[in-house]
Design a protein around this nucleic acid. Sequence first.
DNA 1: TATGAATGAGAATTCATTCAT
DNA 2: TATGAATGAATTCTCATTCAT
Lengths: 207, 207, 207, 207
Amino acid sequence: MSRPKDIETAEGQRRHEAKYQRILDAALDVFAHKGFAEAKISEVARLAGVADGTIYLYFKNKDDLLISLFESKLEAINLGLRQELASIETARDKLCRIMDYHLRLAVESPTLAVFMTIELRSSAKFVKDYAKGQFAEYLEQWAQVIRDGKERGEFRDDVRPGVVKHMLFGALDQICVTWVNSPERKPEELQAIAEHLRALVLRAVAV
Amino acid sequence: MSRPKDIETAEGQRRHEAKYQRILDAALDVFAHKGFAEAKISEVARLAGVADGTIYLYFKNKDDLLISLFESKLEAINLGLRQELASIETARDKLCRIMDYHLRLAVESPTLAVFMTIELRSSAKFVKDYAKGQFAEYLEQWAQVIRDGKERGEFRDDVRPGVVKHMLFGALDQICVTWVNSPERKPEELQAIAEHLRALVLRAVAV
Amino acid sequence: MSRPKDIETAEGQRRHEAKYQRILDAALDVFAHKGFAEAKISEVARLAGVADGTIYLYFKNKDDLLISLFESKLEAINLGLRQELASIETARDKLCRIMDYHLRLAVESPTLAVFMTIELRSSAKFVKDYAKGQFAEYLEQWAQVIRDGKERGEFRDDVRPGVVKHMLFGALDQICVTWVNSPERKPEELQAIAEHLRALVLRAVAV
Amino acid sequence: MSRPKDIETAEGQRRHEAKYQRILDAALDVFAHKGFAEAKISEVARLAGVADGTIYLYFKNKDDLLISLFESKLEAINLGLRQELASIETARDKLCRIMDYHLRLAVESPTLAVFMTIELRSSAKFVKDYAKGQFAEYLEQWAQVIRDGKERGEFRDDVRPGVVKHMLFGALDQICVTWVNSPERKPEELQAIAEHLRALVLRAVAV
DNA sequence: TATGAATGAGAATTCATTCAT
DNA sequence: TATGAATGAATTCTCATTCAT
């Protein structure tokens, strides 16, 4: 549709991807700092070092840019979590790792955290299915760990994975929001909170 | 600030307040359904049964309308919680009542819940101090209950009220978001979740 | 829709109509000189002495402005012709008056003639039904005169009104196009042509 | 002007002409269906099977493409009519053949008819001299037939060729417009109309 | 106070045209 | 010659806000 029709050479493909990514990066920056509604396409273009019109060669419109950014970021986040969990044995450790992973995302890229914590929620209804799917999949990884824990006898029988995943995400997300909006953003503070959360959660769900 | 300067008669005052409230009610409706960015002043005016220009006799601008709505709602929410907690003895019961109260808000006014869950977050930086203070005070009531519980020996010594209040709010808030965005919005489902959450939280914090 | 909602006072109504007409007049001017595609809303606004946005209080969009202009002008043209024909007895005289009327329109308002001859044709497919209806009605008046002439025994039996109306309109229209595009635009020239056409047509259709 | 400068081999010349023609054909198609203003160069390119930029190797710009299309088509039309008339003896028959020829153009290529009937008129002022000359020459052939008829005593003395050519063209053109815009486009209907027109015209001009 | 017509700044988007490859 | 990605000027339309009544 709006993507250049023929990317035939590998070289062309590479350059295309690079520019696509540059625009997404610029969009992340602008959306995080101004919020989607206040963000101007022309500023994204300026930051990406392309002309306004070029944005529309890569994205159908401003909404599509937002959605593509969600897709791209959530997909990477999902993949990262899956890889981290793969090598872990117990559900207990997995659960700890999930919390750790989520908070680490915020520390490693506060910009991404700002964007996700703010925009993902406001776009709840209008983000298209794919993005919702990626988000749902993220939460589903969390639910799966709870389920595993129950099967392995590590977690209580009466714990409901489909509910706990929301609570856990909500708690972590709120902590991220608070932290990224705090003036200092000290990583060690987030670490301390993480440790505390770990203890609370394990008491809540462990047998 | 945005209130007309001279409201001299009591009758005039009353009528003024009534219209002020009508506009706020209309704004809540429109903001909740369209989101702040997509909401049109003219639609708020139509819903409130006043002319567009009249809005500007009561509020400085669109932002001020949003902020005033936050202030108004958060103040009432705060007050309501304080009253409910006043008559309760144990920290345990208070904590349960807090969760119950928060979820009840969503059931009683999904519109308010949509507005608060979505807009409060995106407006984090721009909501003015008074409203921020009201929100902080709301969370502080939660922290105070934890603190009480620790002093009364009901809750564990190592529980950090300043952290738990965020987690708890995050968890409840996320549940509200999920519920208000669900197609059916069955109150009993929210009740079941509340009960589950209660159990988890008490295991997490109780001695 | 796009019209101001409440025109309640007669005075308000009058002012509204006046501005509506001013915009239409400006649009006629700009459309005739630049053509619809090249015409800028901002120029119409400037010529009408209103702000750009004001146009959109009276018309839904640029297309609607064009269509409304057609409606307005064709309706007046139709009415004018009907009145002129009313007082005439014979079909022969009526037919002459039609030709006279059509060419007089061009002489009296070359701007309108330019607009109609050019834009009516290019907009053939997209002009909405109402405007088509007005144009169809205009041609239908012509057909009716032919039909009358046949009934009255003034015109030949084998003349087909539904076909002749098109031919007659085409011939007159083409003459208008040629005339309005001629550098001098001498009215007497058009008169001479009209007289010639009259003779030809009568020979063609009269018994 | 817009042709590439060096076409040195005959083979190169041939290929060049072929592509030039392909682009014109594509342009005709797109201009007829969308109208010049709505037509996109990129769509012409796609239909012609060339890159957007290639168009600009053959034509100076979009306007030049339109003008070149007029020139090309009008030249062929003119030539065609001249050939058809060459073998005919009487002015009467020639006049009939002209009408037949013009309507046949529409039947054989409604696309061309749509393009010519709509775009020729809107572009009246901006079509350049050469194309205007071709169109004038087309009408002049019509005038010449009338003139011949007068000399040969077939047509009335008081018939003015310079006026009749416009009327005749207008009538035929309008009939074409109506026919190409009709949903069915039945050729036999056009034939019936042609026959009727023939009778009318001959009565009008014949001695 | 209340009105709502008018304003005009501002932003997204399109697409003819260019030019490096 | 041919390509097609990139450009950016230009235009429509929206809507918060104002102000004459």
